[in-house]
Amino acid sequence: MNVNRRELALPVLAVALLGTVSAYAGADEDTVAKNVEAFRAAQAAADAKTLESLCAPELSYSHSDGRVEDKATFVANATDGKSKVISLAYQDVKIRVVGTAAIVRFHWLGEAESVPDGKKSSTNLHILMNWQKQGADWKLLSRASTKL
């Protein structure tokens, strides 16, 4: 069987391109993972500036009780000082980058204390986040949660 250079070039080019795409996907996954951790830390610290910077203007943030908030409402409620996060863990984080979108799933375990009365509460949730690459930055576009 005779193989000419053209017939050999296409598979070599395809393998090279796949390696390049994979490298970009890996870099994007790393960036999204860092943003997810920064988001968790900002939630725990009630850091409005960081939450603002990580969320897309079009944010749709839904809670396990069915409430849906836009970006301004989410940031205001997350940083209003009415509760204090005692602990917040994102466990078993899975990230899948698809083009300019990233699908993030994880198990949320949290404990908070109500500031007015000192009452503690815990949350055990499954979270789905959708991040979108906007320019050079990855921004949280939507978030949904389900009680476990």
Rank of each mutant, 00 (worst) to 15 (best):
Y90E: 00
S145K: 07
D47I: 05
F39A: 00
F106H: 15
I127T: 13
V68L: 13
S64E: 07
K94W: 02
D137N: 12
D70G: 07
A48L: 01
N2H: 06
S122D: 05
K82N: 14
A42N: 06
P116C: 00
R5C: 07
H126C: 05
T79H: 06
V3I: 14
S64N: 14
S60Y: 02
L54V: 12
S87N: 11
V75A: 04
L109C: 02
D117H: 07
I127H: 15
A42M: 03
A14C: 06
A25G: 02
V68W: 07
W138E: 00
Q134V: 14
P11W: 13
A9C: 04
D117T: 11
A78D: 03
T73E: 12
Q132I: 13
K147H: 10
I95M: 01
E69L: 14
V85H: 01
A102F: 02
K84F: 09
G19C: 12
E37F: 10
F106K: 04
T73W: 06
A112N: 11
T123F: 11
K82S: 14
S145Y: 08
E37T: 13
R105M: 14
W131S: 03
R105H: 10
S64A: 12
F106W: 01
V32T: 07
P116T: 01
N4P: 07
A33K: 13
D47T: 03
L88T: 00
K120W: 00
I103Q: 10
E7R: 02
L128G: 00
W108L: 09
K119Q: 10
Y24V: 13
R96W: 04
A101E: 11
V3P: 04
V68H: 06
P57Y: 03
T79I: 11
G66W: 02
Y61K: 05
A89I: 03
E52W: 08
K71N: 04
L148Y: 14
A76G: 01
A44D: 06
K133C: 01
A16D: 02
P57E: 14
A16Q: 05
S64Y: 11
V98H: 00
C55G: 02
L54W: 04
E111W: 01
V85A: 04
K94R: 12
F39D: 03
G66F: 00
L8K: 11
S83K: 11
L148D: 08
V32W: 02
K82I: 05
L125T: 10
R67Y: 01
R40E: 04
A16L: 14
R67T: 10
V32G: 05
A56N: 15
A144H: 12
L141R: 10
L51K: 12
V104R: 09
D70H: 08
Q132H: 09
L18P: 02
S142G: 11
L13Q: 10
V21F: 13
H126L: 11
T123W: 06
T73V: 11
E7Q: 14
R6H: 08
